[in-house]
Design a binder for these strands. Structure first.
Lengths: 349, 349
DNA sequence: CTGTTAGCGCATTCAG
DNA sequence: CTGAATGCGCTAACAG
């Protein structure tokens, strides 16, 4: 099968010109006699001929294909980022190839080989890979890869890894959430979710501690439960159970909407009213978060913008010399009902 | 930048052999003297040399890259399908390239060009493209593409488009949901969501009507509201408002979990208790559906399996002559709390 | 077992 | 303005 492809030679012969002329017509970069061009174009159209990007790439040493290394697209956060990156890449005439990698995988090597083999023009790194680096000391290996191929990391800068970094202002995200709760009268606020291995989680938690102390609040209410709804459920239990009811936090700052979802379910089980008895704020503004009961106050990190920005930086760094800088992306607090903003300032015991 | 790539010639020279010997070592398909092999392998490892897939592809007329045309990966259903397809493709040594296309887009042509240009080895079609076909009469155009490239469509067979079809047994899905509700005593059941333009929606709706009549139930409670949570909200209003309360349906069969989510929110606003006063069943078993209040009874269509199966069929059809058949994938009802199964059979007025 | 030759499809010199 | 020649990196024939 695979019907024989029409080549530039076939077109040339049929149009009675040389292959180079056809090439010129295709690229439009050189002058061609109008009549000749018309004849050639007609043949091109007739067969709807498209030059093989393989042959082109072989010659021009590029593939017009970019890679993006992610934990996958099932998590809506990464799906958004991928979508943003993909549409921007497409707009700039590049294809985008996904390389999913699970956090526990140490398989950086095979991926690097693949990237090398497929001769990608550039790579975006985010999530799992970047987390994995710290665990496995692969920094130097990756740094080596970066010498051969332009890369943009969508994460905070990593010591020893010099590349362009684009990342959310997670500190600001936490700060905004915390202040929002503070303004509503909350003085015992807990941080729920994350894990010690996770860089991004760590940054949020640090931001939480920092800002809590800044506001004169206790920062001891914390539980690194994980990142899933289940983590939210167990986290609430672990957080509240050891405490006498009078010392319970009055608000939960969840590391993401998934954790918030689980936390809300557990609170419902425990007959604790949201937001009257417990305020909740999530993070990520996932599509379902406006449909929880009550609708969840959260923070939009704009992952699609990150993807877009990363591609832009990546593409503009192709063919140029290696540079390295950081770009901090803003986060937006989205107030809905889970914190009781409508109730205004309240005094908690 | 882009440090000069090591080529097979460089390796050959350094190892003191000919390029073809290096090639043989690389492919392992031919016998090479153990000593020579060792020497060559050492040089390969030293530079961690990987042959360019571009040059390989040019010669062998394949790219070991597959394409998948989808509405995008932000919808969890397609994210799952993509993930399943991707991991299976990877397992079989193929890369998978996503071509997102929005439903309203008539841009089949540019995509076909791209697919042609990039010389993909095969393509999977699903969602938007397939819907678009019916609207735009692009069947013949696509059919032509199929002559040049193997394809698998993840959707019910389309008249005039001969290819392998893999699709959910939506009729069975609706039937299972309906029977479940029937068994619980519901006799006035509404179908909520979908749209006239959508093939898959149509199939479900037809299945609903068919099975309702089969059970001796009225099939007139229907509202083609769309596929989003908002659609669920407005759909409920449009469905219930015109009816006197005594004639209200007692159960809502939603076209997907998103619509169910919206419907639940609207029912909550209307102070209608789920499941006591109104049962709800969704479809897709999205991750959030076990976290709604109450947890949503739904149907798992196993989109990841569809993706996997599609890739398998696609790969095994590469290089073989064009065949066309259909493969129906089973659907699984997942009973949770939104239909009141725990309440057992009840008699509704 | 190994080396030589040729060509995949194209764009880019360099001549004319 | 156009054509002929060359080579991108690799593998498959064909010799040796």
């Amino acid at each position: 099968m695979q019907t024989e492809r029409v080549t530039i030679y076939d077109v040339a012969r049929e149009a009675g010109v040389s292959p180079s002329t056809v090439s010129r017509v295709l690229s439009g970069r050189s002058n061609v006699n109008a009549l000749t061009r018309g004849r050639v174009q007609a043949v091109i159209d007739k067969h709807s001929f498209t030059p093989s990007s393989l042959a082109q790439g072989l010659l021009q040493k590029n593939t017009r294909t970019l890679g993006i290394i992610l934990p996958g697209v099932e998590h809506p956060y990464y799906a958004s980022m991928f979508t943003g990156a993909h549409s921007e890449a497409q707009r700039l005439g590049y294809a985008l190839q996904l390389f999913p990698i699970r956090p526990q995988e140490t398989m950086t090597k095979p991926f690097m080989e693949l990237i090398d083999k497929r001769r990608l023009d550039g790579v975006i790194l985010s999530g799992g890979v970047v987390e994995a680096i710290l665990n496995d000391g692969l920094v130097s290996q990756l740094q080596q890869l970066l010498r051969a191929i332009p890369a943009v990391a969508v994460c905070p800068p990593i010591p020893g890894l010099n590349c362009i970094n684009i990342y959310s202002d997670l500190t600001s995200s936490v700060r905004q959430s915390l202040r929002h709760l503070y303004t509503l009268g909350h003085r015992r606020i807990a941080f729920l979710g994350g894990s010690y291995e996770s860089r991004s989680a760590g940054e949020r938690e640090l931001g939480f501690i920092d800002e809590a102390e800044h506001l004169g609040l206790p920062s001891r209410y914390r539980n690194e439960a994980g990142h899933s709804p289940q983590a939210g459920e167990t986290g609430v239990i672990k957080l509240l159970n050891p405490l006498p009811k009078g010392e319970w936090p009055t608000a939960l700052l969840c590391i993401n909407d998934l954790v918030a979802l689980g936390a809300m379910r557990q609170l419902r089980r425990m007959q604790i009213n949201i937001p009257a008895e417990m305020a909740i704020v999530g993070c990520d503004n996932q599509f379902f978060s406006s449909y929880t009961c009550p609708p969840l106050t959260t923070v939009d990190l704009h992952p699609d913008e990150h993807g877009r920005a990363a591609i832009q930086q990546l593409v503009s760094s192709i063919g140029r010399e290696h540079i390295t800088f950081s770009q901090l992306q803003p986060a937006t607090l989205i107030v809905r009902e889970s914190c009781g903003a409508a109730l205004g300032f309240r005094k908690f015991p």
